[in-house]
Design a protein around this nucleic acid. Sequence first.
DNA 1: TGCAGAAGCTGATATTTATCAGTTTTTAAA
DNA 2: TTTAAAAACTGATAAATATCAGCTTCTGCA
Lengths: 235, 235
Amino acid sequence: MSLSGIFPIDRWNFTTQSILNILSEEEYADLVANRSDQKYLKGDVIFREGSVPAGIFLIRSGKVKKYKVDNLAKEQIIYVANHGELIGYHAVLSEERYPDSAAAIEDSLISFIPKEDFISILHRSPAFTQRLLKALSHEFTVLANSISVIAQRTAPERLAIALIVLREKYKEEGSDEKEIILNISRMDLAGMAGIAQENVIRLLKEFKTEGILETDGRKIWIKDIKLLIKKSNYR
Amino acid sequence: MSLSGIFPIDRWNFTTQSILNILSEEEYADLVANRSDQKYLKGDVIFREGSVPAGIFLIRSGKVKKYKVDNLAKEQIIYVANHGELIGYHAVLSEERYPDSAAAIEDSLISFIPKEDFISILHRSPAFTQRLLKALSHEFTVLANSISVIAQRTAPERLAIALIVLREKYKEEGSDEKEIILNISRMDLAGMAGIAQENVIRLLKEFKTEGILETDGRKIWIKDIKLLIKKSNYR
DNA sequence: TGCAGAAGCTGATATTTATCAGTTTTTAAA
DNA sequence: TTTAAAAACTGATAAATATCAGCTTCTGCA
């Protein structure tokens, strides 16, 4: 599933969206039996780096950024998780503290699942364990890819890549592709691409004059995905 | 296990060194029954990004870099694996092509294990599967950490961090700490820290005048680890 | 609807880092 | 032990990006 046959979009997504599908109805029911649902407003923190995990989170609706704050500097966004995805399970599995923080980038509904229930299903379902093993292995691809991009690409390329990836995440099933609107702060965009917020704005303006996108306040509407892919200089 | 109580060295290492310990003697014997051993000279490529995996590799002796080459640009080193570690298993587990390449950075002896044997043990030993799940989850910590460092640290800080991490990898059990000698090319150092090779050399010279290290040809001898940690500016 | 705070945006400047075009030193093979 | 190739190193310059200090426009709440 490559975007326009050029951009390897599968290299940018974890696959936790589908791992719960492998559970039987009964197993799924048991997994979520003791869940507690909570609404998070845009900007609300879900968990913080360094704290001890008590369970995992299932994003029912909304979008969540996973990020690290180095020293007192700006945030680096590691990943943007969408509805249907699990977050916070790494720390449970590795028996460590959270290596990163998570916060809602739009209003989100999120289920908390106690770690005991997660571990219990893991022990009960070898198929689920295998599926998780596969998902975690794929994450290596995604993260290695990010490392290489951040280290080797120029700022305009990184911003273009961030926009392409976000566009997929904001794409709603069935709706007209031309109507995809990114609703994300310049700060978060800067955190994703690893560049200064001021330069994000300057680059967006440049992209605008090149006919790649339109903006309206914080909203970004990608008009020409082919041009954007060209800008990203991928492959 | 933090270095000098400051630098979180555990954030830089995968844990595949110990995952085979969980196997029974019989399971281990079966895993390596059909292995083939091969010697790789410094610089030899073990597998290449994009190729189809046929098995996994166990590093018997030596050191291996895992890296990505973006477009035609320089290599970005994702990880340096030491003797005792497994490599190439992500692609087998995720049923994808290799997301990165691997090459020996010193003469190494490496066992190739057919993927069927690896998968077979995985199905046979739930304990091994759990251990692998834990190891893969820990990798998230390591890679997320790398992303944040590459995106947010200055060149001297990144080089200092690379040297600290390498020092641990070159530390031989039991030998005098003062005698640790890094034998690594400036090119590989540049690939690890994500900076130009010329600047690696300039920074090394700077570190030398500050009394942090000594060099002799390609060899680097870290004289003052405390000063180096200070240079890395960690925490 | 007015208003305050947040976020978006701008231009000027400083800083960092890469690039280029070499020279010198090291390494390993003949 | 010579010697050619590779790697280490140097200085000058260019390019990319961050920082700073401010202005403007949104946004949501009273």
